[in-house]
């Protein structure tokens, strides 16, 4: 078969580079998309071994020497600014929302779960304040027309943005942020602590690595008193 109109070498190379360029851009776009999916920071040098995200598979607790210290957030100082989500060196922040059940009102309308406006009392994603759907709303009981729900945090999904914490503070203030030491790599200079606008980060003994707010301590003490009184009454 005769070949007519054979392309010039220049035209052929031009086509080749165009195809390679387009393919390269496709790959770049795909890479950026996948990178965004793995976490908002993406540039962490300390992603866990094997490329697995800490959110997907929590790290084992880091060994702590006796007398060593770890980073923690003081709930009374934290302003839930979303800096913990942004500045942690891990792909997905080691800071997670935590529920203090002694304080939680088992609300129907939880301001940590629902936005402050434009919602209906249903668990559809459009009604979530949490951007990753990390709060589970579970029906507990009903008294008359009143429904009571328990709200728990799914730490695999929580990115530590603190939106639920800021929302919950409008009412009971039972949700708070804590550094989870099963994934924190305990940097010498914590990037979140440097950026924290409220100086809420501090070093605490590794033997007591979690902190409670003043109101939480009060609520827990009151709960203990009630339990003791109930125990005393029943015996």
């Amino acid at each position: 078969m005769a070949i007519d109109n054979i392309p010039t070498r220049r035209a052929f190379l031009g086509d080749v580079f165009r195809v390679l360029g387009a393919g390269g851009m496709c790959c770049a776009g795909l890479w950026l998309t996948l990178r965004a999916g793995s976490g908002p920071q993406g540039q962490s040098p300390q992603t866990s071994a094997g490329g697995k995200s800490p959110a997907a598979e929590p790290l084992q607790p880091l060994p702590r020497r006796p007398g060593s210290y770890v980073w923690q957030i003081d709930p009374d100082r934290c302003v839930a600014c979303d800096g913990c989500q942004k500045y942690c060196v891990l792909d997905v922040s080691a800071v997670k929302a935590v529920q203090c059940f002694a304080l939680c009102g088992y609300c129907d309308v939880c301001t940590g779960y629902f936005p402050t406006q434009g919602y209906v009392l249903e668990t559809g994603a459009e009604n979530h304040l949490c951007p990753t759907g990390a709060i589970n709303r579970r029906f507990v009981e009903r008294h008359g027309d009143e429904r009571f729900f328990e709200y728990t945090i799914d730490e695999q999904k929580c990115i530590g943005c603190g939106k639920c914490v800021a929302g919950c503070r409008l009412m009971n203030g039972s949700l708070y942020l804590q550094v989870r030491h099963d994934r924190c790599v305990n940097c010498n200079e914590c990037a979140i602590a440097v950026a924290c606008p409220a100086q809420a980060f501090r070093r605490v003994p590794a033997t007591e690595p979690y902190l409670l707010g003043k109101n939480m301590k009060t609520a827990i003490a009151a709960l203990e008193r009630r339990r003791q009184a109930a125990g005393g009454a029943s015996t």
Partner: peptide, 24 residues
């Protein structure tokens, strides 16, 4: 490629917090 790049860039910039203000 251009579409994927634009989408990728948009998603890579705080995609999960852009729609809700940080404080109520």
């Amino acid at each position: 490629a251009i579409t994927a790049t634009v989408v990728g860039l948009l998603l890579s910039s705080d995609r999960r917090v852009a729609d809700v203000p940080s404080q109520p």
